[in-house]
Amino acid sequence: MRKYISPIGKEGLYVLDTASWRTYRPVMDKEACIECGACMSFCPVNSIYRDQEKKYYISYDYCKGCGICANECPKDAITMMLEGEGENE
């Protein structure tokens, strides 16, 4: 192995499956959402996005389930649900 002469990383991104850390998942009630953006701006892992119509949605790919979005939503439009429950809502 003399691929690199000194320790460098350029093979790609080092990514962890942080979704597996989650015991509770945030579930958004789109009806109650007033599109204030608090959830997106406070999400530590940038897992909440805004689309072209300025609607917000949650991605579960890397969400660690910290619950900040649910806690900060002024309309309580996000609920933390135990993984495996309420999946179809």
């Binding site: 990514v15 962890l16 499956d17 942080t18 979704a19 660690k64 389930g65 910290c66």
Partner: peptide, 8 residues
């Protein structure tokens, strides 16, 4: 996207 910082 997935980094090893604590929840929250």
């Amino acid at each position: 996207p997935g980094m090893s910082a604590c929840q929250g």
